[in-house]
Design a protein around this nucleic acid. Structure first.
Lengths: 142, 142
DNA sequence: TCCGTTATGTTATACTGTTGCGTGGAGTGT
DNA sequence: ACACTCCACGCAACAGTATAACATAACGGA
């Protein structure tokens, strides 16, 4: 099932002349499997068996993937999550469930907001924290 | 001039039974003077002459100030900035100029947004990066 | 072949944030 | 005055996050 997203990523990279190398692909795969934000050093540990990766390896892969729009960095968590709407235009808006870790993603169709008094926005970080519907439902009450 | 904001903070704390101790007050003062996001360790260094502060000192002060709503953490920069609308209700929205460092602040009057599919938002991080009007104007062209 | 570019490996280090414990002062009740 | 508690702060050590700097390998074009 995550193969679908992975294949889509591969096609997207090919169409743009970007190299989805084994390391990068593996990192994306791990993020897709996790279905939740993952920390850089956890990815690093997951990469270890079979390779002897060091921090720069993982940060370079994450840098590539975020540039390609395949991964989002979750600023308030120092973590990373796969983007399911790869190539989606507009600012990404993340809803992070603090109970189960699930991340939902919205892309604002509208252009980037004009800020107050002529402020020109080039990049936006929008992250919401709370509880997803499943975790907030009566059945899942804490 | 920043005395005004400082005095306001002092009143706000008193009215809520919070202790604006010398260390906390000094940190807030430094942030007000900076008029831009400041990193924790820079605050620490600024605190040093006269006191021998260690990291926990600064992080505790920042924690207190953010809880009191007097300071915002700028997630994407690992930095902190004084809140000029102390006590403002609703989610704070920050516009950070990447050229001059200036931070403009908006408070969304509306309640926190309902997320998709019943997601209950308890906290939002909204940060916009770009160029402020002054830095974007023709006169300030790079 | 030679060279430029890009991706990765490797080592070390810088930066950011936390834990845990001890001390001392302000307030409170006796 | 005394004991008690709470809270802020000092202090030492450490954990977690990220980057710098340099070396090597693989590929494609002049």
């Amino acid at each position: 099932m995550s193969n679908k997203a992975l294949d889509a990523a591969e096609r997207l990279c090919r169409s743009r002349g970007l190299a989805l190398t084994p390391v990068r692909k593996r990192v994306l795969e791990l993020l897709l499997e996790a279905n939740a934000p993952v920390k850089a050093y956890d990815l690093l540990a997951a990469l270890r068996p079979g390779a002897n990766a060091q921090p720069p390896t993982i940060y370079r892969a994450l840098d590539f993937l975020t540039r390609a729009g395949l991964v989002h960095r979750v600023e308030a968590l120092n973590a990373y999550t796969a983007c399911l709407h790869a190539g989606g235009r507009g600012a990404a808006e993340l809803y992070v469930c603090e109970t189960c870790g699930l991340v939902e993603e919205r892309h604002r169709k509208g252009v980037l907001p004009e800020g107050p008094g002529g402020f020109q926005v080039s990049r936006s970080v929008i992250e919401h924290y709370g509880r997803c519907a499943a975790c907030a439902s009566p059945a899942a009450k804490a």
